[in-house]
Each structure stands twice: as C-alpha cells, then as structure tokens.
C-alpha cells in the first residue's frame, strides 16, 4: 500500500504538471481538490484517465470520482480493491 501511495503521488505530479511540488509535499490525507492541491474539474478527468491507463479501472460517471479522489489515501484504497492491472 505504501508503495502504491508513493507511486500515485509521483504519477499525479507528472500527469497534472504540478510544477514545484514534490512527493514529500503531499500528505496521504490532504484533500486533492479545493484548498489542498488546488486541482480542478479537468484534473479530475485526467485522474479518471490515469485510473484507466495505469490500473485498468474504468469509471463511467465522473461523479464517482468525487469520493475516490478525496485524498491519496482514498484513491489508493480504491485502486487496491478494483485494479485489473
């Protein structure tokens, strides 16, 4: 699980072009949207693509993303349970 979280942080930084943010800057329970990393709706869609591309998880409805992408913690838990690759 710890390795997955680290991997997620580095992938998020990469795909969302989070300049000047390092893996150490993201805490497992920090909110990803709103005040946390300040991500927006397009970032949420990009995270949906990331789930599909890296872990073989397809979300049909963007609204599902809201609970999954709350934090690194919730995202890692969801991936661990549902990944197909």
């Amino acid at each position: 699980m710890e390795a997955l979280k680290q991997e997620l942080k580095s992938k998020i930084i990469e795909v969302l072009n989070l300049e000047d943010i390092a893996i150490e800057d993201i805490n497992d329970n920090d909110p990803l949207f709103g005040d946390g990393l300040g991500l927006d709706s397009i970032d949420a869609l990009e995270l949906i693509v990331l789930l599909d591309k890296e872990y073989g998880i397809r979300l049909a409805d963007p609204k599902q993303g809201k609970a999954i992408f709350e934090s690194i913690e919730t995202m890692a838990a969801y991936i661990a349970e549902n990944r197909t690759k």
Partner: peptide, 9 residues
C-alpha cells in the same frame, strides 16, 4: 488509446 482531457481543452 488514452485521449487526454487536459490536452483536448
């Protein structure tokens, strides 16, 4: 096949 929404916009 992974079209990127962030690129599309």
């Amino acid at each position: 096949y992974f079209p990127s929404p962030a690129v599309f916009v």
